[in-house]
Amino acid sequence: MDIVVCVKRVPTSDTAVKIAADGTSFDPAGVQYELNAYDEFAIEQALQIKEKLGTGSVTVVTLGPKDAQKELRDALARGADKAVLLVTDKWVFDSWSAGTALANWIKTVPCNLVLCGRQAIDADNNQMPPRLAAMLGFGCVTEVSKLDLVDGVFTAERDIEGAREVVTCRTPAVISCQKGLNAPRYANLKGIMAAKKKPLDEVPAAMPDAAMAIVSMSLPAPRAAGKIVGNGADAVPALVAALRNEAKVL
């Protein structure tokens, strides 16, 4: 099975977001970046499928800045065979234009499975995997936390509101990975050395203009500082009184 894993370089999850001077984007000063947490599950799943089948290939692709080489090298060090960087220096926040660039590239390579994270934790668009599936004519299951492959058909499980869904999906397919699907491996020294010799191609991204414009970006109103009602179990009556009379939530 030829697997393409889509990964995104995102600001680290502990970033304290600040608004840039233009008022329509985040201020990149001092921001550190990392591989989107959910994409680690996608890489791991790809490696496990390839190991289980004993054949096939794992290609990681990102649409992002040149600096995303670092995240791609990390994916190669974990065991991916090949990496492709579709280079753009814009913040990728619009899934229509990004999806167009990604899907058009995927169509140029052998691929019967696309693995994605369930969500990129910067723009939180939560839509790329089914979007790619429709553009590629593939089946799709989103937010998968258990996955089996038998005779070219996936059986996937995912959480929905108050229940769990079991979904079957033919290949070729796009699967988006949720926490719980697997325990991602980290790169070891041998992997890091091997990754240096693996191909990492850079191609200018063919990305059309965005399907939406950011008019403004803002921070939510800060929460007013609360109060410590007291120490230890003795403070319980005061807390319950405040919840009942002040906050009116009891």
């Binding site: 229509w96 668009n125 599936a133 299951v141 937010e143 929905i160 869904e165």
Partner: peptide, 24 residues
């Protein structure tokens, strides 16, 4: 609605209509 079903279905619809989608 931005539910498990909405998140699965509407991006596909947006792609078929060749347009953007604002989520959540």
């Amino acid at each position: 609605a931005h539910t498990a079903m909405g998140k699965d279905l509407l991006p596909r619809v947006a792609a078929l209509l060749d347009t953007g989608l604002v989520s959540d």
